[in-house]
Design a binder for these strands. Structure first.
Lengths: 326, 326
DNA sequence: CTGTTAGCGCGTTCAA
DNA sequence: TTGAACGCGCTAACAG
């Protein structure tokens, strides 16, 4: 029976047919739990992300789902809400449930993470950033480079006073890395670096609004803002509009991600376009390669990005200098 | 051993401690597959939705996840992309994997669905609409009522020519039901019903744009548009802006869902606010009640909604009648 | 109260 | 080539 269903060799045609007809008649379904118990395989991939209701992450999942489906895997989904304890809890659940692999978008990489991944042998792929010096396979865009490019673009547009709304403190990718790219671009152009034009906040509209408020309430104001997420960019623009600034007339704003609505928003957002679905599919393929013990070509897989120039930015040469901007 | 771990009665303190200390030392983890094989329980809930990268659905999942977590369940996530075959495929996988329960957001309810659910005994809760005359437990907002309320609001605003951008043909909730509510409100007010002011399309920005194009290219144009999703509303406004209409100056637009960005968009969207997280938590609780064989009070659970009036609508009395609107 | 054993439904091994 | 027995790791039932 088992031999027929699993396409073993050395089975006579006759027996095969006989078994299959009985299978058909009795509507027999193999018990996947029992099978898993013997095979030590569950055909289940654990996906752990900070939150689902963020377009970026949900698109990652769509990508993962697409290839997982093709290979007969299903997805066990969990969300950490950026909570370290929860994250480790779920990782342990993944182990207990004997999942075949894990795809993970962490923000922070603590010592506890480290010791966890040293202990476990479950194939794992990280998304969103390189971790522990590239010890584990990962898929991401090059955040430093992307951020550098966005900043350079503003510099080419003759902006000299550029603020950045980076991700929260613990977030390496959208915080540290993107801040780094921004600083590199500024240094490269010999522009002054002003710590007061740098904020580290969550990627929400509200936080973007607050960040803009904080930056614009200072004596010296920037002429351009580079927000490390479209959400923060939208929040910032909202603040600017409410306080009488025109975008891009008075201030240019660049976002990050190119969410659905970035091109519908007024003004249409200039932003770095990531392709999260690609990140997801690549991560899933990498994971399945690992599960099947195929050699992995590269630990680090960088997914292309590109700057999409729309209407929220303007060359500083072209704007009539407003008098409230000293 | 088993008795200790499962908190059976009649275990001496001494044995308990002895066992637990060994468990501690050897870092013993029970094999959940073997346990499931015996207990016929997986502590896994299958969630099947049309797509993840839609804020409405991802919030549903967040709600489900929240209560599932509290009860020790994990989520097996699948997406149907509104594809009937895929949907049935996944439902069968859910059965094969012996999930403890299913939460499902279908758009269509075919005969194949029907026969599937007549055969299976897995506890199931539907989200988004009542199905098969309320035979199965479901959680939703009252789409007819909500749509009626939105339309009534426009009527109270003195609009007489009101168009509707409804959901796709096969979609009962955002298509049929919302169209029905719209029609009821019009009849109630003795307003003319114009089939040319009704479209049935997907809930995307692009489709909203196209729908608006279709409606506004006619001889007689409406003065208000009720879009059955914020996405369509945004697309419609985009079209209107591009073609010289002011919103709400020339045309009022009402949306549906109150997505994140509805309040940031210009003009801020008047829309029906659903609470998808509540729908998710309620569905999950209902499902767990069913799994634990607790009696379910109501098959139908209606989650409240409310109309949020912002800036995309205006009383028709207050607008200067433009000459292009005959 | 506790040690032992049967059996959950598979895949695999060992004879035949 | 194939049938039968064994064991995956657990829980439940049965003795003791």
């Amino acid at each position: 029976m088992s031999r027929v269903l699993n396409n073993s060799k050395h089975v006579s045609e006759e027996l095969k047919e006989r078994v299959l007809s009985v299978v058909e008649e009795t509507n027999f379904k193999p018990n996947l739990l029992a099978r898993g118990l013997v095979n030590k395989k569950t055909n289940l991939i654990g996906v752990l992300i900070p939150r689902i209701s963020n377009n970026f992450f949900s698109q990652l999942i769509e990508g993962i789902n697409e290839v997982a489906e093709n290979y007969g895997y299903n997805i066990l989904l969990s969300t950490s809400y950026n909570n370290l304890q929860k994250e480790l809890e779920y990782l342990n659940i993944f182990v207990d449930r004997q999942l075949d692999g894990i795809i993970l978008a962490v923000t922070d990489f603590s010592d506890q993470h480290k010791s966890f991944f040293e202990k476990t042998t479950i194939p794992t792929v990280f998304m969103g950033q390189q971790l522990d010096k590239g010890k584990y396979p990962y898929v991401t865009i090059d955040n430093v480079k992307a951020s550098c490019e966005a900043t350079r673009f503003l510099i080419n547009q003759k902006h000299q006073k550029i603020a950045i709304l980076a991700g929260p403190d613990f977030d390496i990718a959208t915080g540290d890395n993107r801040l780094q790219g921004y600083l590199e671009a500024l240094k490269e152009a010999n522009l002054p670096i002003n710590p007061r034009w740098q904020t580290r906040r969550y990627h929400t509209i509200e936080d973007g609004y607050q960040a803009a408020a904080q930056i614009m309430s200072q004596q010296e104001r920037p002429t351009a803002i580079f927000a490390c997420s479209d959400q923060q960019a939208l929040g910032a623009i909202n603040y600017l509009h409410e306080h009488g600034y025109d975008v891009p007339g008075d201030i240019s704003v660049v976002g990050f991600d190119d969410i659905d609505l970035a091109s519908v928003f007024k003004p249409k957002l200039t932003t770095i376009k990531q392709n999260p679905v690609d990140i997801g599919t690549t991560a899933a393929r990498l994971l399945i390669d690992q599960i099947k013990e195929r050699p992995i070509p590269f630990k680090g897989n960088y997914i292309p990005f590109r700057l999409v120039v729309r209407e929220s930015t303007k060359s500083w040469n072209d704007v009539e200098k407003p008098n409230y901007n000293q």
